[in-house]
Amino acid sequence: MDALKSAGRALIRSPSLAKQSWGGGGRHRKLPENWTDTRETLLEGMLFSLKYLGMTLVEQPKGEELSAAAIKRIVATAKASGKKLQKVTLKVSPRGIILTDNLTNQLIENVSIYRISYCTADKMHDKVFAYIAQSQHNQSLECHAFLCTKRKMAQAVTLTVAQAFKVAFEFWQVSKEEKEKRDKASQEGGDVLGARQDCTPPLKSLVATGNLLDLEETAKAPLSTVSANTTNMDEVPRPQALSGSSVVWELDDGLDEAFSRLAQSRTNPQVLDTGLTAQDMHYAQCLSPVDWDKPDSSGTEQDDLFSF
């Protein structure tokens, strides 16, 4: 819950932080000083300027060897085509990944977070970031790969997607708890209302004896509580940590079903599988986004697919 609360507080303090972009060759504004600060901008989305290598189908939802083989196929196909790589912007948030063309600003792909089953910074092609997700059109699994400016960037994108998945799962947990509370309150309110109706004398007997209905007592009954809980029953509950912020979080049926399955089948359902080692994760978390744009010590960066 700490990640969720800190993310909400950060967004309320400075929503404009989320509009910064990394990996864009110096076009961005001043960047936060450390990885923790940038992680807090996830709610509205972190932007990464990358190059799209392509996509291939895979048979399993996750796995280092599986993704490595898929990336190898994608890279080989991209090299064989001889075409310049498409420059894209990857927007990562707890909602998922939005992929747009840098030149036309046209939407290429919009992947809900619950469809993503794996992401990684490839070991062999260490400047490549990739994720595996279920197609929104059918049940097939797709591996999408992107060329980053350097290994640090690939690791940073991988960690960002993993963190977005974690925050999304926490949102789901909060929403589920809130819905259970509202359902319980609604049920209790309905029981109270039913009890009051059972003990209320029939209207005919009131008229016969000349008694008047006590409207004041009726007004004191917990009807307002019942209506408050039943009027918006169809509205999706939102985490309290975000009250007053500009973010509107809505959970669709697909996300609810997917996270429910994860909660039942996995020990740590909030953790998205990645190909990063503990050492890689520690190294990337210690980086400032400013470091992502620094040239690798191995030599001059080449803006070309064939540089790796």
Rank of each mutant, 00 (worst) to 15 (best):
A185Q: 03
L213K: 11
P222K: 01
K91W: 01
N229G: 06
S245N: 15
L85D: 13
R266G: 00
K91H: 01
T231A: 10
D296T: 07
T209H: 07
H282M: 08
L90V: 15
T36I: 05
L206S: 08
V167M: 03
D126T: 06
W35M: 05
D126V: 03
A185R: 12
L99M: 15
Q20F: 10
P295D: 06
F171C: 02
A195W: 05
K72Y: 15
H125D: 10
T36D: 06
V248T: 09
L223F: 08
P61S: 07
E257H: 10
D122W: 09
T149P: 15
Q270F: 08
L57F: 10
E217L: 10
Q197F: 08
L11V: 13
G45Q: 06
T41E: 13
W249M: 03
T38G: 11
S93H: 07
E142H: 12
D291V: 02
R13A: 12
G25R: 08
Q134G: 12
A263E: 04
E40G: 15
W249D: 09
K181N: 14
L223T: 13
T277L: 00
G8H: 08
Q163I: 02
S265G: 11
T267M: 08
Q163N: 08
D304A: 06
L103T: 09
I97D: 15
N268R: 09
K294Q: 02
V192C: 08
K83L: 10
Q302S: 09
F129Q: 11
P61N: 11
E216G: 07
A18V: 14
L107Q: 12
D296I: 01
T160K: 08
A208V: 04
P239M: 09
L272A: 01
S6H: 14
R238F: 03
I116V: 09
E142T: 04
Q264I: 04
K72R: 03
A154N: 02
S93F: 04
H28L: 10
D37T: 09
V161E: 00
V58R: 07
H144F: 15
S67R: 01
K5L: 11
T77E: 08
Q86H: 14
A80W: 11
P15D: 00
F129C: 01
P269G: 03
Q285T: 00
Q139N: 13
L57W: 00
K51Q: 01
L103H: 03
Q279C: 00
N211R: 12
H144E: 08
M124R: 14
E250M: 12
D122E: 15
H125C: 09
K5M: 08
K84C: 14
V207L: 12
R151N: 02
Q240G: 03
D101E: 10
I108Q: 03
L212Q: 06
E178G: 14
Q173M: 02
E188G: 06
E64R: 12
T38I: 08
A278R: 06
D198R: 04
C119S: 08
Q173A: 02
K204P: 03
S297H: 13
T300M: 01
K79H: 01
V75W: 15
N268Q: 03
S186P: 06
P222E: 14
E44Q: 10
